[in-house]
Simulated scan of single mutants.
Amino acid sequence: MTPLLPHRFLKGIGRDTVLALHAAGARVVAVSRTQADLDSLVRECPGIEPVCVDLGDWEATERALGGVGPVDLLVNNAGVALLQPFLEVTKEACDTSFNVNLRAVIQVSQIVARDLIARGARGAIVNVSSQASQRALTNHSVYSSTKGALDMLTKSMALELGPHKIRVNAVNPTVVMTPMGQANWSDPHKAKTILNRIPLGKFAEVENVVDAILFLLSDRSGMTTGSTMPVDGGFLAT
């Protein structure tokens, strides 16, 4: 099985997912806009196929990924979080957020799904969403909107691709303790506003999200499609 993993910056969830799939014996194609991240990954895991492209650029993505394959598993992890108060939201933030968080998922998934259908092969796609898709958070209006749209896209893809034996699911993490998560939520006062709403009383670790992704890619979730799986310590239950 060959998984394709598009990321904007190959760190945190994306990097650890690549490492886990490589360790499981998969041939992995890793996509990032950052060549240095890809170079570091290849040094650590020889055999990974790196593709450097900005997924916000439709034409460049088509050129870079049009010949990649065959791909059986896809993890859409590329994303940006441009946080602004609603009254200060800019056109640039809207365009960049929707281009990367939603449009790129559509494009990359089309490339993979068309090839799967042409080969008559089964496949699985996992979209990395967020708890912010289902709960309003201050300064997250654009980010939450992209993730809410991603959740519905996941369901629509599952409906249309299911007859072709392609499953599509999403994972919806809370704050994850990646380097970015640690930087953005290191302020105890800010962190407390979210932690107080998480029954388990803690943020997610990267491996919690990676484990959920691997489950949804595997045959162990063979009857699961169109789902949005919280990895949130109970945040969405409150």
Rank of each mutant, 00 (worst) to 15 (best):
I48V: 15
D115R: 13
Q110F: 10
S133Q: 07
M152I: 14
R114V: 11
L73K: 01
D151A: 02
A132T: 13
Q84S: 12
T146Q: 05
L153A: 09
P85G: 09
V42F: 03
V80I: 12
R103V: 13
S109F: 06
G79M: 00
G67R: 06
R114C: 10
I125Y: 01
F86H: 14
R114D: 10
V51G: 03
L82P: 07
T61V: 08
L83T: 11
V128I: 14
A124T: 00
S129L: 02
D151H: 00
L82M: 13
A118G: 12
T146W: 09
A132L: 07
R122M: 12
V128G: 00
S109E: 01
A113M: 04
G56T: 09
K155G: 00
T154P: 10
W58K: 15
H140M: 11
S129K: 04
R114Q: 15
A93D: 15
A124P: 06
Q131K: 11
A81L: 11
K91F: 14
S130K: 02
G148Y: 04
A93V: 15
V126W: 01
G47F: 05
K155Q: 13
Q107G: 13
V68I: 11
S133M: 04
T138Y: 12
I106Y: 14
A113Y: 06
A136I: 10
K91H: 15
D54Q: 05
C52H: 07
N76S: 05
S40A: 15
G56E: 00
I111G: 01
Q107D: 09
R43Y: 02
A121F: 05
V128R: 00
V108K: 02
V105H: 08
V42M: 03
E59W: 04
L116E: 01
L116C: 02
T154L: 00
S141Q: 12
T90P: 08
S141M: 08
S109P: 11
I106F: 15
N139C: 15
L83P: 02
L153M: 13
R63D: 10
S145V: 10
C52A: 13
N77T: 05
A64H: 01
E160K: 09
V89W: 11
T146M: 09
L116T: 02
M157T: 04
D95N: 14
V108Q: 03
S145N: 07
L41Y: 05
A104R: 06
N77V: 03
E88N: 13
L153V: 12
S130L: 04
L116M: 09
I48L: 06
V80Y: 05
A132G: 11
S40R: 13
F98A: 07
T138W: 15
Q134P: 03
A158N: 04
Q131T: 15
M157V: 05
S145T: 14
S145F: 11
I111E: 00
V68T: 08
